[in-house]
Structure formats: C-alpha cells, structure tokens
C-alpha cells in the first residue's frame, strides 16, 4: 500500500494565506479574542492551531491559550481497526468551562474524528461553544457535522487521499491530493 501524489492543491504560501484569512474571520465573528481558546487535533491539527495562534497574535497582539487532543481513546471503531499503538498527547492546560473553543484540524472527511474530539473536550468541562476550523473540507460526511471556517473546499472521490504537510512534522508546507495503491482508503 503506497500513497501516490497526483497534484499539489495548496502550496505553503496559499496555506499561510488561508490561515490568516480564517484567523481574521474568527476574531471578527467573536468580536475580539475574549474567552477564545485554541485546540488542535493530533497530529496535524496541532501545528495548524499554532499557525492560527500566530496569525491571531499579529492582528490582536494577544497569544491565545493552546491545547491539543488525541482522539484515540474516544474512537468509535475499536472493533474494526483494533487498538492504535501510537497515541499522541492530549494536553489542555487551561479551563475550558465557559470558553469558546476553536477546534482545528487539517482535513474534514467523515466527521468522526471531530465527533470524538468534541466528546473528549466535553470531558474536560463545559465550553460555551465549540467552533470548527479546517484547512481542507473534502466532503463525504457520515455525521451531521459542519465546519465554521474552511481553508479550501476540495471535492474528492472516496478513494482519494489528501495529505497536509507541515514544517514541524514533514519539513515542508503543502497540501497534496493523491491515491492509494492497494486496499485501504483513508480512514
């Protein structure tokens, strides 16, 4: 099973622009940054949330609190996938009660990851609201979940895969669409 890239759909500059635009939209919609906190979904939502935080700091001169969630222990597919041996950290070093959580992920697909992330955040407290930021919305939702801020809508087929690459983890910034040769499509 291997990933074969077909096209670059966003380069680093376009990613930065999309994040900057979404940062402006978030601040505008919430009339500032009061009670806003950022939480990225492991793994690639976390560097994107950091980029959001930097973009918001440029506009508002305020550094928002930043957390991360790893949804492994909240998944709904243990019986089909089995345990995941790689679990990253959930770190929410602030109180989420009555905050507006800006939840950040790289690609929105079935919506199951976001559902699990919301459940996990709810175990930490009762936020006033959770808003969803995604860099790419590729469609094919299986749950009634809708993003509030989208970097780019990308129509895809079920078999296609979207990979978001970020400096922290991949040493470059780009979004690539491709296909997998072999059986297992993106989960």
């Amino acid at each position: 099973m291997s990933f074969q890239a077909k096209a670059v759909i966003m380069n680093g500059k376009e990613m930065a622009r999309a994040i900057k635009r979404m940062a402006h939209e978030v601040v505008e919609a919430h009339k500032g940054t009061d009670d806003l906190v950022l939480i990225g979904i492991q793994r690639r939502g976390v560097p994107l949330a950091k980029m959001m935080r930097a973009a918001i700091k440029q506009v508002e001169e305020i550094e928002l609190p930043l957390g991360s969630v790893d949804i492994t222990f909240y998944r709904d597919d243990l019986s089909t996938l089995g345990p995941n041996p790689k679990v990253a950290k959930t770190e929410i070093p602030f109180d989420v009660n009555d905050k507006t959580v800006i939840l950040v992920d790289d690609v929105l697909f079935t919506g199951r990851t976001v559902r699990a992330a919301m459940e996990e955040i709810m175990d930490w407290g009762r936020p006033r609201a959770i808003r969803l930021v995604v860099l790419i919305d590729r469609g094919h939702r299986e749950l009634p979940i809708r993003p509030d801020y989208v970097g780019k809508n990308v129509p895809t087929s079920q078999r296609e895969i979207i990979e978001v690459r970020v400096t922290d983890l991949d040493n470059k910034e780009e979004v690539v669409i491709g296909e997998v040769n072999g059986d297992d499509p993106q989960s």
């Binding site: 099973m1 492991q42 793994r43 222990f73 243990l78 019986s79 089909t80 996938l81 089995g82 345990p83 995941n84 041996p85 790689k86 992920d105 690609v107 697909f109 079935t110 199951r112 990851t113 895969i161 297992d184 499509p185 993106q186 989960s187």
Partner: peptide
Amino acid sequence: IYLLSGGDPGALAGGDAE
C-alpha cells in the same frame, strides 16, 4: 486490556489519516 482488544491489526497500517 486496550492493547489486547484488537480487531484486525493489519487494518492499522492506514496511519493517522483524516
């Protein structure tokens, strides 16, 4: 308990997509 509660471990190769 978690690690023994596997379905098909082969299916895990898909990585951390989405």
